[in-house]
Nucleic acid binder design. Structure first.
Lengths: 342, 342
DNA sequence: GCACGCCCGGTAAGCGCTTTCCCGATTACG
DNA sequence: CGTAATCGGGAAAGCGCTTACCGGGCGTGC
């Protein structure tokens, strides 16, 4: 691996000069030298060692993003938004997948700290786990204390900037729609109960139920993984426990798609016999069979906003900013009134 | 930011000892000292500076992955596989999105080289661009010359290990299926013509056509972006040029989904009036409306294999390994025989 | 009881780069 | 023409860590 010293030697200059030329330092340098150095760089295929640079310059530049799983379209969209603004600012982003393992989340903030990340962005639901939340918060505070910026998406329990989707209101929208259509037997395909996203959305659903003089019994809610397979499994369980269901509210689109798949497999017509509503409006929601009625969250935009917050200069008053983002209902083919007999 | 020196001072030992304890060096250390150091680490919330470590140790550990776009399910799946094996090996992976910009691809290999990546994995189609291919290859060779490992997925034009999907054979499978069903007017929704994936798949399609005594005219192939929107646009163009089409072969699933959307919008029944076949078998292919007949590629597995190749110890004979991966046809609801009148 | 070796810990030399400080040579100015 | 200001370039001090290498205190064997 060619080093700066090699380049300097070959060009017959000092490393200092070579460095200045390569990095376009403000210090003026003669054109003759510049050319020699540039030529040497080319010949040697020299690329500066980023670690050495980082160490010598001693200021952070990369930004870290911790998500549950980028291959999940929900996070993929958020990440897309994040990346866009990061690129605009010339920042490298390091993506870390926790696969929903809280411990891994902790490890990654250390890793990002170790890598001198300028900011850490935490995307995705928080956990109902006092101990964990406390530990994570402590780590984040230490990071902030040393000048790191932190922004979270979809969590409210931490220090730092936050972009918060209207999970409760969205859940309420779903409930209002379904009960408004006349459904009285609504099942919920929920995500893991230790995720705050699950409980927030559920809370909205419950509020809507109350407003319509209804309530969710224990058997009407099934918890499973926030994924396609989880949605299918939960739907199966729901159907077994409550055969007379006329509507299913899935707490995210992946689960809704799993629900749709299971329903199709069992020959149950959607929305003829059972309506299905999702949450998030992932890009494919419009293309599944039938097209999914869901709650739209501006995913990419949320990512972009979080990155913008995280990148902005040390805020004047040191006050973390909170941005709330709205949820809207998108009606598509998967929902309708309950079957007339029901 | 606390440094190793701070920790050492606080524990009353030399930095050397602190380093040895923190990194679990083979050198034996008394328990008393060990505890003091560990306590100091805890109190100071010390995290070693990864850049300094990398510089001092002087051996590569992270691995870089260059993809067109992780938020595209195709790459998301590949990445998932990659990550899995990287994690098993305790490697950090740096994901780089080129958004299909060749220049960005070049920049990223430099960046990865600068960051002392132990390996670079290039996923996604190559480009039909002599100049570019040559430049990239040169850069990769330089990287290899300094001990870097290289693996590519879905390209054949470069040095290094390779995992190559059967694009041509898959295209042939699509053609055989469609012509076998009796279609005679088949349109192709193709990706960008400068991508090798496009031409490879197309070649298979053409071979199948020849075998059935047919051929693709210029107006039967429309090139667009390898994305949903591109698929919709290309389908619209195709329909305008060739209203009597009975089948559409899309060169990837995203485009197929776009085609499906457009067809639905125009009230054209699939597969009653027009059959649609995709390529890749992304996870959602089974859930769209109607479920997509497509060519299955073991995406996650391909990623895993590439990572395995990239991580294996400097090969005995220094010979790059090539792994071919098979394509199989998955019949679902979107394809069938042409309408009887046609 | 003394030499030898073994342990455990510290000292210091880098890793590859940036940047401050300094110095000799121009140039500008009085 | 002397001096000061200016300009281009180099020497060297780190950035935070790892890891030879070294050295003092033991325990052993004779």
């Amino acid at each position: 691996m060619a080093t700066l010293a090699d380049v300097a030697r070959r060009a017959g200059v000092s490393p200092a000069t070579a460095s200045r030329i390569i990095n376009g330092s403000p210090k003026p340098v003669t054109d003759a030298l510049r050319e020699r150095v540039l030529a040497a760089v080319e010949e040697l295929q020299y690329v500066p060692n980023a670690h050495a640079q980082q160490l010598a310059r001693n200021h952070r530049s990369a930004v870290g993003v911790i998500v549950h799983d980028v291959s999940d379209p929900y996070f993929a969209e958020i990440t897309r938004g994040l990346q866009r603004v990061a690129t605009e600012h010339g920042r490298l982003v390091i993506i870390c997948n926790t696969y929903r393992d809280p411990d891994r989340e902790l490890e990654y903030v250390e890793l990002l700290r170790a890598n001198q990340a300028a900011a850490i962005i935490l995307a995705g639901s928080g956990y109902h786990d006092e101990q964990f939340t406390h530990t994570l918060d402590a780590k984040l505070r230490v990071y902030q204390a040393t000048g790191g910026h932190v922004a979270v998406i979809g969590r409210h329990e931490h220090t730092g900037h936050a972009v918060i989707p209207a999970n409760e209101a969205g859940g309420h929208l779903v409930g209002a729609e379904l009960f408004g259509l006349g459904h009285t037997r609504v099942g919920v395909v929920a995500g893991p109960r230790h995720l705050t996203t699950t409980t927030d959305r559920l809370a909205g659903l419950r509020r809507a139920a109350r407003e319509h003089g209804q309530k969710f019994g224990a058997r009407q809610i099934v918890y499973a993984d926030f994924e396609r397979a989880g949605g299918a499994a939960a739907t199966a369980a729901l159907l077994d426990a409550q055969p007379q269901l006329t509507a299913i509210a899935a707490l995210n689109d992946s689960m809704a798609i799993g629900a749709l798949a299971l329903l199709r497999e069992r020959g149950i017509d959607v929305p003829g016999q059972i309506s299905v509503v999702g949450f998030d409006d992932m890009p494919i929601a419009a293309d599944v069979m039938p097209a999914l009625t869901t709650i739209r969250l501006p995913l990419a935009d949320m990512g972009a906003r979080a990155m913008t917050l995280a990148l902005q200069p040390p805020e004047p008053l040191n006050t973390p900013q909170i941005e709330h983002v709205e949820a809207v209902l998108v009606r598509r083919g998967s929902s309708g009134p309950p079957p007339s007999g029901a």
